[in-house]
Design a protein around this nucleic acid. Sequence first.
RNA 1: GGCCCCGUAGCUCAGAGGAUAGAGCAACCGCCUCCUAAGCGGUAGGUCAUAGGUUCGACUCCUAUCGGGGCCGCCA
Length: 580
Amino acid sequence: MSGMNEMNLFSDIRALVVSALEEMSASGELPEGLDFANVSVEPPRDAAHGDMATNAAMVLARAAKRKPRDIAEALAPRLARDERIASAEVAGPGFLNLRLAPSVWAGVIGAVLRAGADYGRSHMGAGRRINVEYVSANPTGPLHVGHTRGAVFGDALSSLLEFAGYEVTREYYINDGGAQVDVLARSAYERYREACGLVPEISEGLYPGDYLVPVGEALKEKYGESLLDRPESEWLEEVRSFATERMMEMIRADLAALGVKMDVFFSEKSLYGTGRIEQALEVLREKGLIYEGVLEPPRGKKPEDWEPRVQTLFRSTAFGDDVDRPVKKSDGSWTYFAPDIAYHYDKIERGFDALIDVLGADHGGYVKRMKAAVAALSEGRVPLDIKLTQLVRLFRDGEPFKMSKRAGNFVTLRDVVDQVGPDVTRFVMLTRKNDAPLDFDFARVLEQSRENPVFYVQYAHARVCSLLRKAEAAGISLTDEPQLRDEAEFAVARKLADWPRQVEIAARTHEPHRIAFYLYELASDFHALWNKGNENPALRFLQEGDPAASAAKIALPRAVAVVISAGLGILGVTPAEEMR
RNA sequence: GGCCCCGUAGCUCAGAGGAUAGAGCAACCGCCUCCUAAGCGGUAGGUCAUAGGUUCGACUCCUAUCGGGGCCGCCA
């Protein structure tokens, strides 16, 4: 059914195909009880083949014990009966190529314009609740480029899932319970001493970055000199929570500069001392998945200081992991994995239907154990998808950027956003699959040419805005009834019809980059049509002295702008109204 | 040693098991008295790393091998 705002031409035609197949079952032309799940209706690779193609005959041939072409021959006339189908031809090994009536394409444009920003919105998610955890950077310093990619990816994925009908919670897990925040506290304390006029001792292993200088000053402002010359045990907790708080403020501001806003910041520390870690592990223990044991030494690496120790282990191998994983160290303290288990258990307890973790690729070794934990805790009810974002390699004019974390001069999210702006940052980061490394060239990214997909897409939108300004000046009243005649116009309409389908594919695969590529293609088709107007005045959108024709012509570019705007909205990029 | 990701045009990369594998850049040839030429059209460019397997059909799924990157006991 195409409910409100859910015009999807491909699923409509697929429904038509399926009902025709059901008729054939009923009439004995096909056996009863066939599975139509793999029947697809897609744009053919080659537009010359038609507007859509279905693989129905090939998919059903085996079960129906009939030749694919025979099924296709029988199916074709049934489809052709529908007024939307102009022709149905059998081709190749058993494809059925469909051509649609011109009025269908005009209908698509009308539907786009009526639905506006909601065109392409899907009910696929059916309101299911999904938790997307991303960034989750340690609160020990500013966000760097790698975090930026994760932030953009997670945010766009969240918006995409919302657009596809899921109820999304965007969440950040604050690692404020481990040893690294103690290091942060000690580093901040040295900056505090500095602020008090003493010489800071930023020894090996502390965080040397300048960003802690203001934290030291703020500590002095709050505590005066009262923390000086006291043992660590007396100030550590205070300074730790103070510094962590300040780091999170900074991180929130960094994210805000990128246009990222979380729904939930979840503190690791909040899990300690409340029994929640114990509780989560108890759930596993009841399933017989927790035991005391000794792990084999890791192979390949020379186990210099390795010695067998008894630890508390989670039987993750029961869920496909390579080895069982320690949750409690031999000294009785938790490993980092234990609060992570508790955190994911908390997500499950909050009733999410699905979980997604967006992590840097360096956390790849962590995937299996976390999936194992979630599978065990939810008894397989809650799927966890872990998306790893690969490295970002920085360049300027083709020259690689050197970064040294030790010296504290790594490139931050702020560096990037301040130099190129959030729109460009976001779009560029989404023009690559998450699991492919990304080259980010500060110079090239700001280039205003076809080479740069951001400008290419925005230019298409700006061109439409320009048209609309001109149309308004000419006093043309708009209409949702388009006039389509030329192949280039139909090409754009076909692309617009593909938008809802692309949204669903992208949402299903958790791959927001598909939206960016789609927008590029749409822009390309539109630029091609625009340029045809240069050679053929009949194809110009503004028809001199003919307001009615102009209004009908402008419907198509208006629909293009609607979809570009919606697509960029998912990516978190503002559509430009003009290019300067 | 193990695990994960990657290998597609000279370069950067797309590609829900479907037809003759696509786009941009670079190269070459064209298009502005005309809605933004920041654009468009065309030509050329390929043993989809290799070898097997699964099936009506494989760039796509499975296995092995080669090459590049990442990770690898009580660090997060």
